[in-house]
């Protein structure tokens, strides 16, 4: 069935709530109002106040309560209204949830949904891509779907997972993409990347909204005779190193692309692993395209300059292809 990225997330949540009575939602404005982005619209009416909980503005309480409930065997799905505000629950996530299994063998089957990313004129407090903070924390799983089917399949897998999962959903994709999504019990495994476009000359490794930027760039480059392979990571932790390295070995040139800022972004980690494990397969230096090391600016010309786009990727990819 064709649906938007947003509808796909909602359908995934709804199916899991139907399937498992232990799945419940908590967050700010998610019930009566249906969520700031309307992801949870209609779920209060369908499942009732017990399972769709409107909370105070208390990110740390939302995350902490989700952890407590998950320790008791429930499967909470907590919503951060914007991924930017996840900082207010950061301690609960990195100091407690992430360490429970390692420290004392306790499972925390919790999902935190975090609407992230720019391109919606949200400015410095409503546009960030904070995924790398959590990729750096052992014990957390971090997923970032790029497509409607992956959004549905990954939210379902995240809810069923017995470890804490951070689900970064890109705000700019919510209503922008509409795709065919399989009906019913369809999941996408956590920890598996996907080669979403086959190519010979270079690989673009990316995730989230940048997958669509990479596709646009690849079409332009194809007309110039440059064949681009695209790997959509889908999960950022644990990283699917095998799929990344296989693509690098195939094309021998790699461009790492993310909307997150350059320094400390996942691109640096990927570059490190590729250099360590596939150095002799490379025919050119590793190229990174990412946002500059600034806050996300508000004014449209500034935001446009900040965000990676197809033109920027194409330019760097041409250089890489010619190398």
């Amino acid at each position: 069935m064709e649906m938007t990225y947003l509808e796909a997330i909602r359908q995934g949540i709804r199916e899991e709530m139907t399937r498992d009575s232990g799945v419940f939602l908590l967050g700010e404005d998610i019930g009566v109002y249906g969520g700031a982005f309307k992801i949870t619209s209609g779920l209060l009416q369908e499942f009732g106040e017990k399972r769709v909980i409107d909370t105070p503005i208390s990110e740390s309480a939302i995350v902490g309560a989700a952890i407590g409930a998950s320790l008791m065997g429930l499967r909470p799905v907590a919503e951060m209204q914007f991924a930017d505000f996840i900082t207010c629950g950061y301690d609960q996530i990195v100091n407690f949830a992430a360490k429970c299994r390692y420290r004392w063998g306790a499972a925390v089957p919790m999902v935190i949904r975090a609407p992230s990313g720019g391109g919606i004129h949200g400015g410095p407090f409503h546009s960030q891509n904070p995924e790398a903070w959590f990729v750096h924390t052992p014990g957390l799983k971090v997923v970032a779907p790029a497509t409607a089917p992956d959004a549905k399949g990954l939210i379902k897998s995240a809810i069923r997972d017995n470890d804490p999962v951070l689900f970064f959903e890109h705000k700019a994709l919510y209503r922008r993409i509409k795709e065919d999504v399989p009906d019913g019990d369809f999941t996408v495994p956590i920890g598996k990347a996907a080669v979403v476009r086959q190519g010979r000359d270079l690989s673009i490794i990316t995730y989230g909204a940048m997958v669509h930027v990479a596709r646009e760039s690849a079409e332009t480059l194809e007309k110039e005779g440059i064949s681009v392979e695209i790997v959509d990571l889908r999960t950022l932790a644990p990283l699917d190193e095998d799929t990344v390295l296989a693509s690098v070995r195939k094309t021998s040139k790699v461009l790492l692309l993310h909307e997150d800022v350059l320094t400390g972004g996942i691109g640096g980690e990927l570059a490190g692993r590729i250099a360590e494990k596939a150095f002799h397969d490379l025919d050119a230096p590793i190229v990174r395209v990412a946002a500059p090391d600034t806050p996300v600016p508000y004014s449209p010309p500034l935001e446009e300059a900040f965000l990676p786009n197809a033109a920027k990727v194409t330019e760097r990819a041409r250089w890489l292809a010619r190398y």
Partner: peptide, 12 residues
Amino acid sequence: ASVPVAAGAALA
């Protein structure tokens, strides 16, 4: 940090 966690356990 246990205070919100206790709330979640109680919620369960």
